[in-house]
């Protein structure tokens, strides 16, 4: 029964990983840009939420919602004011620029908030759990995070498939110049894609901050997990990213259970490398050629 319990914790944890990763997948899908600051931007959001709670003394939920709005706006202007200028013929430019951004965010956070671990307090829900049997219980909070992840992934997929703007996202992803000829301003589309990506990673950052403690250097780890989830799921597939996150989460928790804590992360990476070796395009690779 312990193993079932551990596997369930892994699945629930995977939802959070996926939430960190979908923004990365969206940005890569729409503009073929790798954002190395993605994880740090999630942690930045956690600190913004903490700052709002401490300064205005409002609840975590309201602070989180406000943070999502802030990061959405930040994303749009970050893309239009800086990152759009890195896109073009040279693929390394956005990588170098977002790497720099990552360093700036990490050190900025250390300057303003110190390197100490912080936590966001959400009250009783953090420890409440549903008892299924004497050996199996599911925490309300991890379950809530998991459900939120599925809702976000579903909403994003519906947006991309069913709305006029979502269609424009996909058209721009297929062929930027042809989309331009249809009247689609790709700079605006890119701005919106980054805004949505940072809105989602802000939610992920806040949820992480409630679940566990966080410090300014954690963004890099978050980025690696997010990459692993995206690549295992198949680049550009939103549902695939959710599955990739779950696979990573389950590998980590089962690894810890089998070999002792500390080994979990290694097992997660090994499973990722195995998937990469066996199926390099990921579970749900969406590659379409004209």
């Amino acid at each position: 029964m312990d193993w079932v319990n551990v596997a369930i914790q892994g699945i629930l944890l995977g939802g959070l990983y996926a939430l960190f990763a979908v923004g990365l997948a969206l940005v890569f899908g729409v503009m073929r840009m790798v954002n190395l600051a993605h994880g740090d931007l999630g942690i930045l959001a956690a600190f913004i939420a903490l700052f709002i709670v401490n300064t205005f003394h409002i609840g975590v939920v309201w602070s989180g919602l406000l943070t999502i709005v802030v990061m959405f706006v930040v994303g749009y202007f970050l893309q239009r004011g800086l990152l759009n200028f890195t896109l073009g013929t040279d693929d390394t430019r956005p990588i170098v620029v977002t790497f720099g951004l990552s360093i700036i965010i990490q050190n900025g956070l250390i300057m303003w908030f110190s390197a100490d671990s912080q936590g966001l307090d959400a009250g009783a829900i953090e420890n409440a759990s549903i008892r299924i049997s004497s050996k199996l219980s599911i925490g309300w909070y991890p379950l809530l995070v998991f459900v939120l992840s599925i809702l976000v992934v579903a909403a994003l997929q519906l947006f991309l498939n069913r709305t006029k703007l979502g269609r424009a996202f996909r058209a721009t992803s297929d062929d930027r110049e042809a989309a331009e000829l249809m009247g689609i301003n790709n700079r605006h589309i890119y701005g919106l894609a980054m805004a949505i990506a940072l809105g989602i990673v802000a939610l992920a950052g806040v949820l992480l901050a409630i679940r566990t403690t966080f410090d300014p250097t954690q963004g890099s780890f978050r980025l690696i997990y997010a990459f692993e989830a995206v690549i295992m799921g198949g680049m550009g597939s939103i549902w695939g990213t959710l599955i990739g996150g779950i696979v990573l989460g389950v590998s980590q928790t089962l690894g810890s259970q089998a070999f002792g804590s500390g080994w979990g992360l290694l097992v997660g990476h090994l499973v990722f490398l195995t998937v990469l070796a066996v199926k390099p395009s990921g579970f749900f690779a969406k590659t379409v050629t004209a």
Binding site: R170, S173, D174, D175, E177, A178, L181, K286, A290
Partner: peptide, 12 residues
């Protein structure tokens, strides 16, 4: 403009 090579959106 109907561009050279047609350039339809392949995944749509």
């Amino acid at each position: 403009l109907v561009p050279e090579g047609r350039r339809v959106f392949p995944s749509l």
